[in-house]
Nucleic acid binder design. Structure first.
Lengths: 110, 110
DNA sequence: CCAACGCTCTGCCATCAGCAGAATCGAGCG
DNA sequence: CGCTCGATTCTGCTGATGGCAGAGCGTTGG
């Protein structure tokens, strides 16, 4: 896997990459269940170190890996994508009720 | 990138993988614009052969590649994910108005 | 203090992402 | 019909990275 072509100069990267969005959701789901990297990774059949890397958006996992980890969290890929999409529907400043959950999720993920 | 652990026996793979969903959407978007692999690949800075592979779900592209290809289609990753999610919201049999567009999109993709 | 736990860091290598050249296919034309 | 051309897919290759094992770090509780 090779690095993508560089963006034009003066075009700082603002939008998150797929691996960032994915990783955030996976970590969020894991924390929601109150489980450790070891527990989820064990069920998914991957190493805890690797799951950590994926959650932090450091690695682009294969599609099969994504499937396996989602399953270990009792999710499907469809669930994941929908959840990412739903969060993307609220790009503006946080609002009262909706933002509370997001803020907590972020605090737990940090 | 290594193969994921095998699924338990007696569990045939039914759900599409991420690379399949992604590839379908990218090809659909390209056809909607009436463009060739060469044109889009050129703007994205990748080879037409590789874009073909991605569209057919043969390769798991890096997140940066996904970004570059989406941009070449005047889309963002957010657009792509939303579109995939929207399509996933209609898993049942096609209905009159909604299905027409899907059928056309599939026919163009074939 | 030390052990246990959860997570991240570091270094490694087998696999595959990404590609160049070749092959195939279908449409259009003389 | 044969030929040309453009679009797409096939094939083989290699450098980069996905995925991992061992080590390191911080926190907590006895």
């Amino acid at each position: 896997m090779h690095a993508a072509p560089a963006l034009p100069p003066g075009s700082p990267r603002r939008a998150p990459l797929w691996r960032h969005l994915l990783g955030d959701r996976l970590r969020s789901a894991r924390h929601r269940r109150g489980e450790t990297l070891g527990e989820v990774a064990g069920r998914a059949g991957v190493s805890p170190q690797y799951l950590s890397e994926i959650e932090r958006g450091l690695k682009d996992p294969s599609s099969e890996m994504v499937e396996a980890i989602a399953a270990a969290l009792d999710l499907t890929l469809v669930d994941l994508i929908r959840e990412i999409s739903r969060l993307l529907l609220a790009p503006g400043p946080p609002r009262a009720g909706q933002a509370t959950e997001s803020v907590i999720a972020f605090a737990l993920a940090a």
